[in-house]
Write a protein that binds this DNA or RNA. Structure first.
Length: 586
RNA sequence: GCGCCCGUAGCUCAGCUGGAUAGAGCGUUGGCCUCCGGAGCCAAAGGUCAGAGGUUCGAAUCCUCUCGGGCGCGCCA
């Protein structure tokens, strides 16, 4: 509807230009907006004010010329010029009524479009280190990333969803060592658990699995374990040196094969847990991309070599540095450490180069906002490699801070004090969790009040929307119980009987849906869909309270049923995009 | 110190990329069920859009500064 008006205005401008009535170099994009006040019509266009200066005409006079040149349309009832030069469009009733028929005809497809033209886009999200269960912070990235991906797909992009598995770094070694140390404790060895180790219960669980498989056979004496290990922080030492030494002891005492077995057991157990968690949360991936595979295939070495050959690397203090400051980063970055190990950043360069090589027109990374300082260096690396960094968009999601009983809930993966995503889902349900997470725009800090989200009776917007959906279903059930006939064709033929104000408003709401989906997708703003659905549900509940649908007259009844069924369809489509269910009863 | 994000009703947040009189929910107050589900509806009260300048026909929105809050600034990932 909006694009129809934009075309009309564009054609008007073209014809004015042809006639020499409008002397202007190039035409800007015509913007048509919904009005806030019905007295200003249904849509308004500000083009006359935008062009006034360049055309050296008075805005209102220019507006009059544009209106005179507008092609006819059966959707436009009349056009007015108002205020400083707004062109206000008043739509015909037929224009709105058509939306109802169109929703019913298109069903689940209503709101989808081919805007993206099938162009390939990758969305990488969550990608949490497999060193522990997903917590509520990851949940926001999961809900947000999944919804952005679904939105882009809805407007016609070919979307590839990916999870980058950090299975090759030092954190994984700390995890493997933590598991083995817990195993030692199960085998009766007394140890001081390192302050830097992973303390969560899940570490005990994995250690127990290990103990069931191997008994005490992989145990060593406490004294042997600590040989040559510098003291931990509580004992006055350095916790990093301490844990690194313990990792080295674990490798030496277990041998590479057994160490690898512990490592892989921990990795696979936790990764399986993460996959299940996300799947239950309605979040699916096309690919789980392993960092280790990147290392083992030599891709990381090749990326470093490319940087070296193009002269962007140098050696300093025994380490190999990337001169990222040449590309706007605030300081240079190490890619190979003094000890010969490649940094995580080195893998990430190779990973992002690989993404672009795979032919995605656009690559979207969804990261926690704490990683924002990392963006310039990744973009710098892509530029240094001769790639176009503008193909990469990093969307930063601010943290969700949990509140319980009005108190901030402290979280730390290491200490094991955190609320897992699973716990949250079990407490508030998938629907509320998915909805709450995307209710706010991603750069907004979010206070996630557990008590509020848990309360199932009131205040919860997701129930309000779902209730509207269930109510329509309930009306349709009533229809059957009363044995009343229903004819959709007749309903469409009698849409002109829907002239109540509430009906009008509901139809206007329905007509907005495709615009909302498009805006939300192109701006990566799922919250727009969430807010829209609330408004739509409100329009429906208001209508429901003001009028009876199952009236005597068959024509009016069928028309109203078509209207509320169209409403149900749009609610279902919108909730579907957000990963929230649309129940028929509640 | 430098960089990024945020500051809008008592609380939690929208505000359509510069438009017309700044909007919702919750909370507060007062109304609405012999009728399709009251998990609903209607109404009222509630604002110096953190503050100060600037850009222009027009600013909550764009620019600069100040003040507050969050997060980053590793040869960690």
């Amino acid at each position: 509807m909006k694009s129809h008006l934009q075309q009309l205005v564009s054609r008007a401008l073209e014809s004015l230009r042809e006639k020499g009535d409008l002397e202007i170099e190039n035409l800007p994009a015509v913007k048509v907006d919904r009005t806030r006040d019905r007295r200003h019509g249904d849509f308004a266009c500000n083009i006359a004010m935008v062009l006034a200066k360049a055309a050296r005409r008075r805005p209102r006079e220019l507006a009059e010329a544009i209106v005179a040149a507008l092609p006819d349309s059966d959707q436009v009832e009349r056009v007015e010029i108002a205020g400083p030069g707004f062109i206000n469009f008043f739509m015909t009733p037929v224009a709105w009524q058509r939306v109802v028929a169109s929703v019913l005809e298109q069903g689940e497809r209503f709101g989808r479009s081919e805007l993206g033209g099938g162009r390939p886009v990758q969305v990488e999200f969550v990608s949490a280190n497999p060193t522990g269960p997903l917590h509520v912070g990851h949940g926001r990235g999961a809900a947000y990333g999944a919804t952005v991906a679904d939105l882009l797909e809805a407007v016609g992009f070919r979307v590839h969803r990916e999870y980058y598995v950090n299975d090759a770094g030092r954190q994984m070694d700390i995890l493997a060592t933590s598991v083995w140390l817990r195993y030692l404790e199960l085998a009766g060895v007394e140890i001081d658990f390192p302050s830097n180790g992973y303390r969560g219960d899940y570490v005990w669980d994995i250690a127990a699995t290990l103990h069931r498989s191997h008994g005490d056979a992989w145990a060593v004496e406490g004294g042997e374990l600590m040989e040559g290990v510098p003291p931990d922080e509580p004992a006055g030492g350095d916790k990093e040196l301490h844990i690194d030494a313990l990792i080295a002891r674990a490798r030496a005492l277990l041998g590479e094969a057994r160490y690898r077995e512990v490592f892989d057991l921990a990795l696979h157990t936790i990764l399986a847990n993460i996959r299940r968690d996300l799947e239950e949360f309605g979040v699916r991936y096309d690919q789980w991309f392993s960092e280790r595979s990147l290392v083992e295939s030599g891709a990381v070495d090749r990326a470093i070599e490319r940087l070296r050959q193009s002269g962007h690397l140098y050696e300093k203090e025994g380490a190999l540095w990337f001169r990222s400051t040449d590309f706007g980063d605030e300081k240079d970055r190490v890619v190979v450490r003094e000890n010969g190990q490649k940094t995580y950043f080195a893998s990430d360069i190779a990973y992002h180069a690989d993404k672009l090589e795979r032919g995605f027109e656009r690559v979207i990374d969804v990261w926690g906002a704490d990683h924002h300082g990392y963006v310039p260096r990744v973009k710098a690396a892509l530029r240094a490699l001769g790639d176009d960094p503008s193909r990469l968009d990093v969307l930063l999601v601010q943290f969700a801070v949990l509140y319980r009983g009005g108190q901030k809930v402290q979280m730390s993966t290491r200490s094991g004090e955190f609320v897992t995503l699973r716990e949250l889902r079990e407490e508030v349900g998938n629907d509320a969790a998915r909805f709450f997470y995307v209710m706010r725009k991603c750069e907004q800090h979010m206070d996630f009040d557990l008590d509020l989200a848990k309360s199932r009776t009131n205040e919860n917007p997701v129930y309000y929307i779902q209730y509207a959906h269930a109510r329509v279903c309930s009306v349709l059930r009533q229809l059957e119980e009363k044995g009343l006939p229903r004819d959709r064709q007749e309903g469409n033929a009698h849409l002109h009987l829907l002239h109540e104000g509430h009906e009008q408003e509901l139809m206007v709401m329905l007509s907005r849906y495709p615009e909302v989906v498009e805006e939300a997708a192109l701006n990566e703003e799922p919250h727009q869909v969430a807010h829209y659905l609330r408004e739509l549900a409100n329009a429906f509940h208001t209508y429901y309270n003001a009028h009876t649908f199952l009236v005597e007259g068959a024509g009016l009844r069928d028309a109203r049923l078509n209207l509320i069924e169209a409403t149900r369809q749009v609610i279902a489509n919108g909730l579907g995009l957000l990963g929230v269910s649309a129940p028929e009863t509640m």
